[in-house]
Amino acid sequence: MSAISVDDIDRLIGVEQYEEEGEFPVEQGYIWTTCSSVENGNPLFWDEQVAEVVTGGPIAPPTMVSVWFRPHHWAPGRTTRGLPLQVHFDLKEGLGLPEAVMSDNTIVFYEPVRPGDRLRTRQILRSVSDEKTTKLGTGRFWVIDVEYHNQRGDLVAVESYTGFGYRRAEAA
């Protein structure tokens, strides 16, 4: 966790940061809890025979990929931890932009995630714009990719976040 200043930007574009493994393996119980929460009856997640025929065994809903990285609310001995999307907060701090919004995010899905998988994630800064003024205020847009791999090294998903860090118009 270290602030990213203007001088650091060129050096950090394309660099893999904050690689970490999820706190627990992908598990069937959470798959059912998530499907239940949105009443998703896709037989891939409920019928072993369908999963065997269609996907060669059980898989997790693709949109769950970030779920496997949200830390436990409490864990023994833990003192500090990185925030999800730490690079976003490093940019806010280093560029002196106290406010930020995410304008959109994209998830691209690759190899299916399966129960028992141990996933790893890393964050990569892709771009930072020059200063721009919007109706929110003056600041910069940035794009951060979050890549997810399984324990075999297969890419399973890439999330791209477009953020806008800014100072409020009245304070500028």
């Binding site: 998530t34 499907c35 949105v38 896709n42 809903p61 949109t63 769950m64």
Partner: peptide, 9 residues
């Protein structure tokens, strides 16, 4: 993230 699960469904 839960909205993403709704869209997937």
């Amino acid at each position: 993230p839960n909205q993403a699960a709704w869209f997937e469904r």
